[in-house]
């Protein structure tokens, strides 16, 4: 069995319901002429439609009997009497609800439209932040300038102090050095003099000793010479 074209099924159903325009109907008929599946689908939908109408007719045929049965079933049912208090209450409730709604709406609108109460803490915090923000650069600049000035002054003073202290230290060092050197030189000079003196003394002693030795040797020689002279003949002596 051929299947109906999926894209045509709505159009076929609309055709059965009679809602297609003349142009749409013509287009559908052209398609149906060449499509057995869609033609069969249309035939089936029309059958269902007729069957529904027939079914409705059967239901409708028994409607009068059902209606009379329903009227009989009413029996001794009577309208329930609505207490007078109920509408009165209902009116009161409605009024109350309306009043509450109006009040609520007023409160909501008021809340959104009236300016908010000043929050002292918030205001203080805001002012503090604002003042801080505005003053901070100026204060910072001033403090930095003072720090620079103080640093410069202390730097100059410090340089002067250091220079003077250095001079003093150098002077003391030089004095100490000079005095130490003088002492050392004196000591060395004394030692040298002492050494020279000791050497001269030694030399004198050696000279004296040598002279003594010479003297001794000379005396001995003279004696020997004298002795030799006395023993030698005159001729030989001339």
């Amino acid at each position: 069995m051929n299947q109906a074209c999926t894209n045509m099924q709505n159009a076929i159903a609309d055709h059965v319901l009679g809602v297609l325009s003349e142009e749409q109907t013509q287009a559908l008929r052209s398609h149906l002429a060449g499509c057995a599946g869609c033609a069969e689908y249309l035939r089936q939908l029309e059958d269902h439609s007729k069957a529904l109408i027939a079914c409705g007719a059967r239901v409708e045929a028994d409607m009068a009997a059902r209606c009379e049965k329903a009227i009989e079933a009413l029996g001794d049912v009577a309208p329930v009497r609505v207490p007078r208090i109920v509408p009165l209450l209902g009116r009161l409730v409605r009024t109350a609800v309306a009043a509450v709604l109006i009040l609520g709406a007023g409160i909501v609108i008021g809340r959104f439209t009236t300016p908010r109460a000043v929050d002292a803490e918030q205001l203080r915090a805001d002012v503090q932040a604002s003042v801080l923000a505005s003053l901070k650069p100026a204060v910072l600049e001033s403090v930095l300038a003072q720090v620079d000035q103080r640093l410069e002054a202390s730097h100059t003073q410090m340089v002067t102090d250091i220079t003077e202290q250095t001079h003093r230290d150098l002077r003391v060092f030089a004095n100490e050095l000079l005095s130490g050197t003088q002492t050392l030189v004196d000591r060395r000079f004394t030692e040298v003099v002492q050494l020279i003196e000791a050497g001269r003394l030694t030399d004198r002693r050696q000279v004296a000793k040598a002279l003594d030795q010479i003297k001794t040797q000379t005396g001995i020689g003279l004696l020997r010479l004298a002795a030799w002279t006395e023993e030698t003949p005159q001729a030989l002596q001339n």
Binding site: L74, V77, A78, P79, V80
Partner: peptide, 16 residues
Amino acid sequence: EDVAQDTMVKGLERIR
């Protein structure tokens, strides 16, 4: 049928 019948009964009871 049953519901329709009930409907008519309720309608009469509450018509006020």
